[in-house]
Design a protein around this nucleic acid. Structure first.
Lengths: 94, 94
DNA sequence: CAGTGTTACGGTGGACGTAACAATG
DNA sequence: CATTGTTACGTCCACCGTAACACTG
């Protein structure tokens, strides 16, 4: 489970489309499609309900993953922001 | 900033040694040494105070990173555990 | 047949290990 | 000189993009 996989998953959920998700994360649709499959394989449970093609709906596990994924990505952002600020301060030597 | 980098960093801090950190994350010392340098390069600030070789001490940024890194790794673990449990339930079809 | 998702496949950048080197006690 | 960290370097593979295919409205 890597950050890029989580970004791709969250993008796919929020955009409701592999194509738009791919644009958001600066990848091509095949890259996203394959990465999502790999993620599902790693955790051993499907995240999307692919029974019906027209419906792009999450499974229970998918909803759980979405909650955790957004939190993880948010905290990474917080972490980078905190360090970025420390960098600023150190550069000014204040 | 990737999970493996965070694992390596936390291991290096807690083990107080690149060698033991490498063992913990199942890598060789060069892999860890280089990965830590790369992490520092990405965030633009040094995490260890390398002024004195004998002392393996964290900078302010290093301590901040350690706090955030342990939280991120902990939440990844929580996420995987939650999904693993959902997998169990689905397998039993309860 | 237009639009979207998936499979096939070749190329490539990056992470790793081995080996050699540097530094410290 | 034993131990630990770092640099050098070659290998390998995981990810990506292009192209082709499958499915749906």
């Amino acid at each position: 489970m890597e950050f890029m996989q989580l970004e791709m998953f969250v993008a796919a959920v929020e955009e409701g489309s592999v194509q738009r998700a791919a644009r958001r994360v600066r990848r091509t649709p095949p890259a996203v499609s394959i990465a999502l499959r790999k993620l599902e394989g790693e955790i051993g449970v499907s995240l999307f309900d692919r029974s019906d093609r027209s419906k792009r709906v999450l499974t229970d596990a998918g909803r759980t993953m979405y909650t955790h994924a957004t939190r993880l990505l948010g905290e990474r952002h917080t972490t980078l922001a905190a360090l970025s600020e420390m960098k600023q301060r150190s550069e000014v030597e204040s």
